[in-house]
Design a protein around this nucleic acid. Structure first.
Lengths: 193, 193
DNA sequence: CACTTATAGAACAAAATGTTCTATAGCGCA
DNA sequence: TGCGCTATAGAACATTTTGTTCTATAAGTG
């Protein structure tokens, strides 16, 4: 009982187009009509797959909800592990469909339950990876005591996302180097609190 | 040559409603029809004020682009100044229309030029305030040498916005206290780089 | 009070959004 | 291969939304 390849092909083609539209023109333009024009798939077929506009938009959101999982490198030292992990994360933000559509998903998340789930799920993954890196560093004794690691993790993730998704500023290697340097210097310094 | 009060009243009422719709239902629902139904203002009048849907949405964005300017307190000490400024900022995010609509503006910014301008302008203001606080602390000799102040400013602002606009997590007094504590401990510690 | 102008409301045109039907063609299975 | 099943294209259609234009009325101005 294999699935009809025509269904698969239609879904693939349509969602690809929907994502491109989402990225280039915004959520307002993700409609059956626009996707039909972009792909040649007839409107009636699209309505068969996604009964209304909301379903179609949700599908475009959800598809990118599965970015490649990042298995963190935790063999130290901290600076190296962190630089590698955040480098991958930055690369995803800069160069993958996910990064290009993320602002739209974030935007939608304040009124769209589906988008909100996508974001929180995604962030949970990211935090877990960064946490693993810090946990390994703690095990190796690389981190000073009474350093608030929870907050450090938040800052590590917040900065690149803030720059990219809110300020729409460039994320480059230089910036990331400085970011990681600062994080490590905090981690290794007894804050004296 | 005073301006007709009817024009002012119509604009006020309509944009108020448009903002409420933007906040509660998302940018997709900010239309002449919806605003008309919400306010009782006739559709033709709305079209007279804002020729098309884009103008209407831009107006809703732009109006909140003028949040009360925050004159930073810079009489020290750093922790106190920073806590006060970020407290005001956090309050605005939590309790004002701006904070409620900000996610939508951020979202729109990736395809809408007007929204992008609103965000960058707004962020420029915020960074300037935080920078003033740090500059005063430097003058007072409160900050260790070779602390990368630019990055510190970015982290100071990034964390609350990331939490609120991207993760949709709560911003409370406890969290802010810890955030300010961490920032101050970084500022006062020679990072040894 | 006379002039100007903003508004409401209707009537309308155009486009987008959904729905339903039929003919065709691709697919799975025997 | 051939049969039944079903996905698709496309047209025809109803409905809603979007935008325009007109007129009568009411409100503000001087």
């Amino acid at each position: 009982m294999k699935e009809d390849p025509r269904l698969i092909a239609t879904r693939q083609t349509a969602i690809d187009a929907a994502q491109r539209i989402l990225r280039d023109e915004g959520v307002l333009h993700v409609t059956h009509g626009a996707v039909s024009k972009a792909t040649g798939i007839s409107r009636s077929t699209l309505y068969r797959h996604w009964p209304d506009a909301r379903c179609l938009r949700d599908a475009a959101f959800r598809r990118i909800a599965t970015p490649p999982n990042i298995p963190p490198k935790t063999d130290g030292p901290l600076r190296s592990d962190l630089r590698w992990l955040l480098g991958v994360l930055m690369g995803a933000l800069n160069d993958t469909p996910w990064g290009q559509i993320a602002p739209q998903v974030v935007a939608a998340a304040s009124t769209d339950e589906e988008a909100r789930l996508v974001i929180t799920e995604f962030m949970k993954d990211r935090f877990a990876s960064v946490e693993a890196v810090f946990a390994a560093a703690i095990d190796r004794g690389e981190i000073a005591t009474n350093v608030p690691v929870e907050q450090l993790i938040e800052l590590a993730v917040a900065a690149p996302y803030f720059r990219k998704l809110i300020r729409h500023e460039a994320l480059d290697e230089d910036w990331l180097d400085r970011h990681v340097d600062l994080l490590c210097s905090i981690a290794k310094t007894n804050s004296g609190q």
